[in-house]
């Protein structure tokens, strides 16, 4: 038989103070089971203090084909970086 359990993407917060990071995916019939399965598959050795599961279908991703044009608006804005500004060396704490 084939089941139609949806695919869930799993995100784990390694410890307090860190972001949740994508670790992989799994299939589960519902969100609660996805969370329990994620605990067993991805945190058997204290790898996390918090887990998010998100249905893979609910994720909208940027396309790799247009990654250059998509991110190009920030490419020519060098003035957004602190190193763009020259400050005399003898100015402290800047």
């Amino acid at each position: 038989m084939s089941t139609s359990w949806p695919l869930w993407e799993v995100f784990v917060r390694g410890k307090r103070g860190l972001n949740h990071v994508h670790v992989g995916s799994l299939h589960a019939p519902d969100a609660e089971m996805a969370l329990r399965n994620a605990r067993d598959v991805y945190t058997r050795r204290n790898e996390g203090v918090s887990i998010w599961v998100v249905k893979a279908d609910d994720i909208t991703a940027s396309s790799p084909d247009e990654k250059d044009p998509f991110f190009s608006p920030s490419g020519d804005k060098v003035y957004r970086h602190p190193t763009f500004y020259s400050i005399p060396e003898d100015v402290p704490h800047l």
Binding site: M1, T3, P29, D30, A31, M33
Partner: peptide, 18 residues
């Protein structure tokens, strides 16, 4: 087990729980 879990999930959705 897979079928039962799937049926349960479908029922939860139908009843507006999940």
């Amino acid at each position: 087990v897979r079928e039962a879990a799937e049926a349960y999930a479908a029922k939860q959705v139908k009843e507006g729980v999940a």
